[in-house]
Design a binder for these strands. Sequence first.
RNA 1: GGUCCCAUCGUCUAGUGGCCUAGGAUACCAGGUUCUCACCCUGGAGACACGGGUUCGACUCCCGUUGGGAUCACCA
Length: 479
Amino acid sequence: MPVVTRYAPSPTGALHIGGARTALFCWAYARHHDGQFLLRFEDTDRERSTLESETVVLEALRWLGIDWDAVPGFEDVPRQSERGPRYEEVLAKLLESGAAYRCVCDDARLEHLRERARQGGQAAVYDGACRERGIAADCAEPFCVRLRIDAHAPTRWDDAIAGASGQDASDLGDYVVARTDGTPIYHLACSVDDHDMGVTHVIRGREHMSSTSRQLPLYSAMGWQPPAFAHVPLLVEASGKKLSKRQDAVSVQSYRERGFSPQAVLNFIARLGWGHGDLELFDREQLAEVFEMSGVGHSASQVHEDKLLWISQHWIKTLPMDELVEQLQPFLDAEAGRPVEDSAELRKLLDLLRERSKTWVEMAAQAGFWLRDEIELDPKAARKQLKAGIAGPLGELRAALADLTEWTEETLDPTFHAVAEKHDLKLGKLAQPVRVAIVGVPQSPGIFETLAVLGKQRSLQRIGAALEYIAARDSEGGD
RNA sequence: GGUCCCAUCGUCUAGUGGCCUAGGAUACCAGGUUCUCACCCUGGAGACACGGGUUCGACUCCCGUUGGGAUCACCA
């Protein structure tokens, strides 16, 4: 039987990396087995579900490169809100067979029940008061529908990650499957959907563990073969707390905005709670190739971004230039304050910067000296490197550079060395002031490469400006 | 409170009843390389939560303790 997995988010906000990771595992498992990966929106919570959120979730998945298959019979990603009739149908069958029954217990009684159970140190489960009352559909009182969970109901399963799982049926109680208004509760909708969509492997977060105990009897009541279950351990914050608080900071969108490539984010989240020997760096396809459920760990993982930064740098270093430019473009535009045109020169610069950037944001910032015509000197660096003593050699260097007819690393190099030697300076003593002059800060790619890519005119102009800076400072008495 | 789950370097993880005084990665520190930064290279420090068992032998199995977490809705 071909593998079918699904990711079924509630469209109530951004897709955070915990959800993205679950989706990724579902995707990888399906792809590994040449199966199908489906999507569905669990939007039965009408209050919180929004269309906008659906778009955000889909966009995040797309960005990560997690592609999904179409669900037969649906043009779009299925929504639970559109499947009401089907749930009613199942509900009717459940009622008819006696697997479910109508319950007229009101909130007050239920609350009382819970309180008493808690006081007595017992599990707060429904006492089954309406179980044998045979309440009919034409009952005058408002009623909900509960699933009958007998002592022998199947509530245990062999989890693909957690192993033997489940709890006693007696700890569950007859839970509600349909509200007073007739709408289905999650467990019903979810089970029916998974069954109808032909899902063979439900891979979901650990927080759904007890849902499974409840859903299994439902499958049994309908005479359906339940899917295999795999519950993925949670992701927690660096503080060890649940991942929901700073949700915006850990949303896929946030990582995107902070300048991480989808490759890096995917690589990073896959390694959170999953491992394959010593494999650290891999792309989507490689992941699908080696992904096994047995590689998923049993304990929660903390989201520390140290490793993400390293992974991100790796991808920036190795991405094909075309893709690099494509991903970097928005950050470049933002840095420049205008649309930046692609060019051979730009690409030369980016090749120099890609070795020393951990994010697109960082890379764009480092490109700032090239993107702008005017630069600002970092005060501290200027004070340190642009001192009176260097004015002479720097002036001479500028003159020598001005005489160059060819402006390449090969012509720049000997020019520098000649001036440095003449003044008995180490290359660094000359290179650093020049670096600060043309870049503004004391770090950049190699000085010759940087000059070459900046161009003769702008380089000479900036060195000239630096000389003026020194002169101005000198006349003020310097420090 | 009931039920259930988890526990290896700061972090992500590998691992097996003896080959592990525990491997990789990252982060950190120190060197090297270099015109700076980064990359890269070399080295360093750093963990089996605790206590009982079982066993010839446990990080690995069992029990308890502690710590963390999930869930117990007419939310999903």
